[in-house]
Structures are given as structure tokens and as C-alpha cells.
């Protein structure tokens, strides 16, 4: 059995699909939201010279509604594989934004305070 066939078999099993959707919504979805909040706040504050804490607090307030929509999308989507890839890619991109934001912040700091 090839890997592709194995993945196909898992994705066709109804119980496995539901389990994966639950994991995707509760674990990966929450990780994505947390990293997204931190990443966007970090990069946004560095690029637009905003207060990072303020931006983060706004994102948290909106994040609750975003998470609700994310859960609904995960359970409504018929293309589970695509949905999983988008969320994992979202985590990676948000992490990159967080890293980039941190770098920009460090570059903006005076040398002696680094």
C-alpha cells in the first residue's frame, strides 16, 4: 500500500475524519490563533510603530470570534486535506511573521539596550 493510498483510506474513514476535525479545531486551530495573534502583533507593531500590547489585546478580542469562525469552517469544509494544509501553513507563516517582527524590533532598539 502506498502512502497516498494509506492517507486516502484514512481520509475516507468517517470516524477518523471526525477525530481529525476535532484535533484540527481544538489543538491546531488554537495553536494557529495564538501564533497568529503574537505574529501579527509583533510584525504590525514593528512596521506601523504601534503599541504591541494594544495590538495584541485588540487581536485577542477579535480572535475569539475568528476562532469560532475557524471551527465552523473546519467542520463545514468538504476538503479536509486542503483545510489542514491551510491551517498548518498559517502556523508556519504566523511563526515567520513573529520571527520577522522580533528581528525588526531588535534592529530598532539602541545598541546598548540589546
Amino acid at each position: 500500500m502506498t502512502i497516498k493510498a494509506f492517507l486516502q483510506a484514512i481520509s475516507n474513514a468517517k470516524g477518523m475524519q471526525i477525530l481529525w476535525r476535532v484535533v484540527l479545531a481544538s489543538v491546531l486551530g488554537f495553536i494557529f490563533l495564538s501564533v497568529f495573534i503574537a505574529g501579527v502583533a509583533s510584525l504590525g507593531s514593528a512596521l506601523f510603530h504601534l503599541s504591541k500590547a494594544t495590538l495584541m489585546l485588540w487581536l485577542m478580542l477579535i480572535g475569539i470570534v475568528l476562532y469560532c469562525c475557524l471551527v465552523m469552517w473546519i467542520f463545514a469544509s468538504n476538503k479536509l486535506m486542503r483545510c489542514s494544509v491551510i491551517i498548518i501553513a498559517g502556523i508556519v507563516i504566523s511563526s515567520a511573521a513573529l520571527y520577522a517582527g522580533d528581528m525588526l524590533h531588535k534592529n530598532h532598539q539602541p545598541v546598548e539596550s540589546r
Binding site: K52, M56, L61
Partner: peptide, 27 residues
């Protein structure tokens, strides 16, 4: 959810702001 939001997103706060004290001192 908002009342306990800072607890639920404490990981995001730690990632974004280094430590939570600096986050709270901003307000």
C-alpha cells in the same frame, strides 16, 4: 470568554511580548 481571555491567550502573550509583566505594564 473575554473575562478570562488573558489566561487563555497567555501563550500568545509570552510569545509576542517576551513576558507578561511588560504586557500589563503597557496598560
Amino acid at each position: 470568554i473575554v473575562t478570562l481571555m488573558l489566561m487563555y491567550f497567555s501563550w500568545a502573550m509570552n510569545m509576542g511580548d517576551g513576558d507578561r509583566r511588560s504586557f500589563f505594564s503597557a496598560f
